[in-house]
């Protein structure tokens, strides 16, 4: 069973729909107990870092999420869900994230002539060949991004980058923890392949 965390931060149904298209069993939940019962968790989300953290706190989800990850069960953060894994965000006065991964979340500079937010289809540049989430995803595949902030991990956990003025972490991968800055559930066939890979992870 895969838990999709519903904490009021945007479109969760498309994630569920993508999982179910492969016959995966899912539960959309904001209950800590339900998370404990699942072997995989997805933290989706779009929106503001600080509000997202406040919502996670409100539903008492932080310890459940951290507990899930510490028990080595599989976790996937999508977009804001990836950013929340990090220790600090430049957004909203350096609010503290979940601090499961070391690093910070910063905003794209608006000085290099590029439009911010970074919205649209951009290419993945694979940095590691062994990330199971990117199995059968060719280098330079186009996937859909929609964000103003990106994570800068301290450790060597980047499985793919993307170039938008700066080369930023598009996919991170450490043990049982996965994070994607793009939206696999919105990236048509290739995105669905990433979802399928996630389902097939042990």
């Amino acid at each position: 069973m895969i838990a999709i965390i519903d904490y009021g931060m945007g479109n969760i149904h498309s994630v569920q729909k993508a999982l179910e298209s492969f016959g995966a069993e899912t539960v959309v939940t904001n209950q800590p107990q339900a998370i404990k019962a699942c072997d995989k968790v997805i933290l989706p989300g779009v929106g503001a870092f600080e509000d997202a953290l406040a919502e996670l706190k409100k539903y008492n989800l932080i310890s459940a999420l951290c507990g899930h990850i510490k028990s080595k069960k599989t976790f996937l953060g999508i977009c804001l869900g990836l950013q929340l894994l990090f220790s600090q965000s430049q957004e909203a006065n350096h609010s503290k994230g979940l601090a499961i991964l070391k690093g910070r979340v910063v905003k794209f500079p608006d000085t290099n002539g590029l439009k911010v937010p970074h919205i649209g289809w951009n290419q993945l540049k694979k940095a590691a060949e062994d990330c199971p989430l990117l199995k059968d995803i060719p280098d330079k595949s186009y996937v859909y991004f929609c964000h103003s902030y990106y994570a800068v991990p301290d450790d060597d956990i980047v499985a793919a980058t993307c170039d938008y003025g700066v080369e930023f972490a598009a996919v991170v991968c450490r043990d049982n923890i996965y994070g994607v800055q793009f939206h696999p559930e919105k990236s048509q066939a290739l995105g669905l392949k990433v979802i399928e890979n996630f389902i097939n992870l042990c």
Partner: peptide, 8 residues
């Protein structure tokens, strides 16, 4: 935009 993020 503050609540849901500018990108949305």
């Amino acid at each position: 935009s503050r609540r849901f993020g500018s990108q949305c």
